[in-house]
Amino acid sequence: MASILVLGGTSWLGGAVAARALALGHDVTCLARGESGQVPRGARLVRMDRTDPTAYAALPARDSWDLVVDLARQPGHVRGAVAALAGRSAHWAFVSSCSVYARHDEPGADESAALLPALVSDEAAPEQYGEGKVACEQAVLAARAGAALIARSGLIVGGGDPSDRFGYWPGRFAQAAQDGGAVLVPNHPDQSVQWVDVVDLARWLVTAGLSGTTGVHNAVGSAAPLEHVLDTAARVAGFSGEVVRADAETLGRMQVQEFMGPRSLPLWLRDPEWRAFMDRSGSAAAGAGLTSRPLEDTMADSLAWERTLGTARKRSKAGLDRGDELAVIESLAAQGLSIPD
């Protein structure tokens, strides 16, 4: 039984990491404010704010941890953690992001691609997410003399996903299967989509972390065409109705946005500078043991989560409200702008 400290553990991925470690029989402690939810049953919660300089003194007394898993986005939190714990842990895993890269137009780029400049301050604003993660990585690698696992995650998906980006599609196809209406999709079938299932990522962070895997890895699965992803979503949702396609120019005129946010079609990317945002090399992580569940299983988990939330709910994080979508489809038909399937 290993001793594992999760810096987080009450939010989505952190909870999945803690749950996986518990399922393997390990002793799990989570240090978090506890505002995002509960830790999995069996884990120990140390309720602390990581901006408090005494936060780590509240942890259970022990000489060392077998593994520390940190999911922070704020450089100050990471700098404080490594200052307090880097010398008291056998292994360290930090969850970073592929948002650290300076360019997203190079399909298949690996971990050697150029990075954004590291943020100097301790606190990253939302628009400084990538720069903040670079600073976090640097703090971990410096404190651990390079002996750490840096997992640059791609789009994390599956049950519990708070972003709505992946789950929108099985949820919308399921809703359309019930109401009998059409579904609007971007006419960009060959665009690459890349993801990592939260179940796979959590499992890998625990097993690779405990085994002593170090180095920087793009924690992503293989890229697939957007059309394949949407076809899978429709099949899992039991949808066999009409699909209405529209090109990027037409969607732009209809003020339908790309990728995420209000009035968007999730996962779709029209900007050529971002065409490889979901198309990076994951060979290093695969070589280190990261595996991918079948897409059908990931979609099924995403659909179950969507149904828990309510597929007819208002969409603010990503996607179109159903009524808005049907109005766009009607307008496209009236103007003769939809593309035959």
Rank of each mutant, 00 (worst) to 15 (best):
S222G: 15
R203F: 00
Y168Q: 08
G158C: 03
A19E: 10
L269P: 00
A219N: 06
R79G: 13
L303I: 14
R47D: 03
A219I: 11
R172S: 11
V256H: 03
S211M: 07
P40H: 07
R47T: 07
W204Q: 00
R103V: 01
R253E: 13
E137A: 06
S192N: 09
E249G: 08
L7F: 04
L24E: 13
L269C: 03
P170K: 04
A86Q: 08
F277T: 01
A224W: 10
A57Q: 13
V193L: 01
E249S: 10
W169D: 07
K314F: 11
L226I: 10
V198D: 00
R315L: 13
G108H: 14
A21T: 01
D190Y: 03
F277M: 08
Y101K: 06
A237D: 00
L267F: 12
V82Y: 06
A18E: 05
P294V: 14
A86D: 13
Q255R: 14
R322P: 00
G215F: 13
V206H: 08
D105L: 08
W12E: 02
L251A: 02
T298E: 01
A83E: 15
V198C: 02
L22I: 08
G25D: 06
V199L: 01
P186E: 07
H77F: 12
E325F: 07
R307D: 13
L116H: 05
L7T: 08
A124Q: 06
V46K: 01
G212Q: 14
A182P: 07
L116D: 06
S36M: 08
P53H: 06
G8E: 05
Y56I: 01
D161H: 05
T308K: 13
G212F: 15
D297G: 00
G282L: 09
D297A: 14
E127R: 09
H104E: 10
A113I: 06
M1D: 07
L141H: 00
Q255M: 11
D27F: 03
A125S: 12
R73G: 12
A312W: 15
A182E: 09
A333D: 12
E242M: 02
R47V: 06
L251D: 01
A304Y: 09
Y129H: 12
L267N: 09
C98G: 10
L141Q: 04
A135I: 10
L149I: 03
Q128D: 11
V243T: 06
R88S: 13
E330W: 09
A32K: 01
G282D: 07
R103N: 04
K317V: 10
P340N: 07
G160K: 04
R41D: 15
G252N: 10
V183C: 03
A224M: 15
L251F: 04
T298D: 01
D271C: 11
S89C: 15
A312G: 12
V46F: 04
R50C: 02
R275A: 15
L210F: 11
A57T: 11
L320M: 14
P162V: 13
L31D: 02
S163F: 05
P186V: 05
V140A: 02
G158S: 05
G171H: 03
K317M: 14
V95M: 07
H217A: 09
H91F: 02
D49K: 06
D27T: 15
C136D: 04
A86R: 04
W268S: 01
L303V: 14
E273R: 08
A318M: 11
G160T: 13
T207N: 06
A84Y: 08
